[in-house]
């Protein structure tokens, strides 16, 4: 029985050591700023990701990218950032020992709702990607009914051409008589 307990304890210890080693093996951490944003549709915001190298060796060729997930009730889904952000992924050539790298992700807010943004860092020497905390993003809907005075043109021009059309038709009919 004792042997079994010792054996099981050793296994648990080995797993714990392995887990600790794996955690410690992540040489980088990443943080996202601002931690929360409230804005309107159409606004432009910029997320800043700070990647910190905690090891004594330089970290090279890491990839950092931003992800956005819609958490609005009933619309939960990951977002395709093509329309939202110009540079989704950033390749960082090198971060010196105990140094940091700051990446910028400008984003145009396309649709209203509740979202979370987070930055992931992939280091090819690590088995586990590193993620930042989630930044909460609340986008308010903006309703514009007559931007650039489009309504007078959109309604007026077909009417105006219709009136010219009527004028020509009546003139032709009179000429035919």
């Amino acid at each position: 029985m004792k042997r079994a307990i010792v054996f099981l304890s050793l296994i648990i210890l080995a797993i714990a050591v392995n887990y600790t080693f794996a955690s410690a093996a992540s040489r980088v951490t990443v943080s996202i700023n601002p931690p929360s944003v409230q804005a309107n549709m159409g606004d432009k915001i910029t997320y800043t990701g700070t990647i910190t190298n905690h090891s004594d060796k330089a970290v090279d060729n890491v990839i950092a990218y931003i992800s956005l997930a819609n958490i609005t009730q009933g619309k939960e889904s990951p977002m395709d950032l093509e329309d939202w952000s110009a540079n989704k992924a950033i390749k960082v050539d090198a971060i010196p020992p105990h140094g940091t790298y700051e990446g910028k992700w400008p984003m145009r807010l396309i649709d209203s709702g509740s979202y979370v943004a987070y930055i992931m860092v992939v280091d090819k020497h690590d088995n586990t990607p590193v993620s930042s905390t989630m930044s909460h993003l609340e986008i308010q809907r903006v309703l514009r009914l007559n931007p650039n005075n489009v309504l007078p043109i959109a309604l007026g021009e077909p009417v105006l051409i219709g009136l010219v059309f009527l004028f020509i038709t009546i003139k032709r009919r009179k000429a035919d008589k």
């Binding site: 549709m41 396309i110 931007p147 043109i153 959109a154 051409i161 059309f165």
Partner: peptide, 25 residues
């Protein structure tokens, strides 16, 4: 003339959508 009326109607719809639709605007 029908062509021109249709042209202006299509352009009206397109312009209005471009400027007011939540994504297109």
């Amino acid at each position: 003339f029908i062509w021109y009326i249709l042209t202006s109607i299509i352009l009206s719809v397109l312009s209005y959508l471009f400027l007011t639709n939540s994504e297109l605007s």
